[in-house]
């Protein structure tokens, strides 16, 4: 198997919109619900490039973690103070 290479730019999907079944109309309210994180609702899926200690660089999807408890933590930036 070819060794996976990395380059300066590695696209990652970002937010992954949920497919609406063909022919089904959605209201604006439903569209907001599908694309905004809200308690009690499905977490919007996404793909991001990541660094993992001992593994290296890897693209990761939130949906890879189905079946596990996930804590998703956003923070303002590496090397900041808090």
């Amino acid at each position: 198997m070819a060794k996976e290479t990395d380059s300066c730019v590695k696209p990652a999907g970002g937010p992954i919109a949920k497919a609406v079944p063909e022919g089904q109309k959605t209201s604006t309210q439903q569209e907001i619900q599908m694309t905004t994180a809200r308690v009690g609702h499905e977490a919007p899926d996404f793909e991001a490039s990541a660094f993992i200690k001992g593994v290296g660089f890897k693209n990761i999807k939130l949906s890879d973690y189905r079946g596990k408890w996930v804590v998703l933590c956003f923070y303002p930036g590496d090397f900041t103070f808090v």
Partner: peptide, 26 residues
């Protein structure tokens, strides 16, 4: 999408989400 991006500064503010094994934000 998670409501934490601060456009003026170009950063994600401090946001923490607990997601259960079904993929629901709790």
């Amino acid at each position: 999408v998670y409501g934490v991006y601060e456009e003026a500064a170009g950063v994600d503010v401090r946001g923490r989400f607990i997601i259960d094994p079904n993929g629901t934000v709790l």
